[in-house]
Each structure stands twice: as structure tokens, then as C-alpha cells.
Amino acid sequence: MADVVDLLDVVAVIGSFPALAGATLRVEPGEIVLLRGPNGAGKTSLLRLCAGLLPVVRGSATVCGVDLTVDRRAVRRRVGLLGHANGLYADLTVAENVAFWGATVGATRDEVDAALVRLGVGGRLAGVPVGRLSAGQRRRTALACLVVRRATLWLLDEPHAGLDAAGRDELDATLRQAVQAGATVLIASHELERAAGLATRTVEVVGGQVVGVAP
């Protein structure tokens, strides 16, 4: 089976700043790969490149079978990205937010309800505007939006941030369930102990390059 992520000597820039400087990474289907490295190493840029948000300046990059050097927009429907921001609308309720993002892939009402329950934001919370939620509850809502989008490749940037212990457990369980359903996961995290327990493989990102496979 073809790799879900196949990057070879990829260079990407943000403005004039070199975000990736010859990154090479291959991820097989069903893997949960942890990207670790210091701040500014290029972990977020790597995730954004895989999401088709960052153009490839040099090198070759194929994600979910899509050549990003040809049409990076084509990969977007197949990936789900949870970045530092949650991508939520503060004046819409939890249920309205999840339904809105679910509608982009034709998710049914039942799928929306199931995602709300799975991430612990169903019931009374579902009718609360996101702007009134705690940071952890917003993160759970963002994860519910990701679940309902049924992405092939999950790109998560510090997904455990802001979550309480129960929320972290639910996130880990959700990711394992997604992988069992056929998804592949890339996680950038500084919470190494938690993320490493979840990951099937850990790679080190330094200076915009994937410098090695960590034990």
C-alpha cells in the first residue's frame, strides 16, 4: 500500500523565513507518528504543508496520493488539521459548530450527535455557544469537528493542550479508534510522555529537517 505521506527533500518558506529546509518523511497507512523537536523546528510547518496550506518550494511531496507540487488544494478534503487555533465560531453553539464542519463532508445528524457524545460535549453542552466554554471544552469541540469530518490523515498540533486528564484519555481513545477505522495520524507535541505512549513511531524535527527516528 502506498505511503500516506511521502516527502523528499522538501523546502518550504513562510514569507522569506525558511520553514522547512529539506525535510524527508514517509508515513505508512495506520501509523501514529509523533513529531518532536524544539520550538521553531518546523513541526507546525510540516503539518501545514501536509494539509496543503503551505506551498512546496522544492523537493517532492505526495500526501494521500496527491502530488502537492501539482495541486495542493486537492489534498485538503482528505486531511483534518487541528492547529493551535480551534477553528470554531464563538457565537455558534457546540452542536452548530460540529454540524457546520460536518456538512462540508455531508455528515449526517447521527454522525454529528455521535461525535458530540464521543468527545464529551453532548447533552447540555451541545446547546452552549462556544464563546462561553472553557479552553478544554473548546478543544474537545474542535476534536469533535475533526471526528465528524472523517479525514484520511489527521494532522494534530499540540492536541492535548488545554485538555484535562479525562479529555486526554478520550482524545487518545478517539485517535486509536480513527486508526482502526483506517486513518493515519501525525502529531506534533511537546507532551512527549503522553504522545509517545500513543505513537507507533517518533521522529525528530530540527531546523526544518527530519533528522532522525527517535527510539
Binding site: A51, G52, L53, R73, R76, R77, V79, G80, L81, G83, H84, A85, N86, G87, L88, Y89, A90, D91, W101, T104, V105, C145, R149
Partner: peptide, 17 residues
């Protein structure tokens, strides 16, 4: 501002809207 405040504009792009 509604789209920018919490990164929804990027999320819309990734969603393939």
C-alpha cells in the same frame, strides 16, 4: 474577524470549501 479570530479561515481552506 469572525473567520480570523480562531483560525476558521484556515479550517475552511482545509475543509476544501
Amino acid at each position: 474577524a469572525v473567520e480570523r479570530d480562531d483560525g476558521a479561515l484556515d479550517a475552511l481552506r482545509v475543509a476544501g470549501v
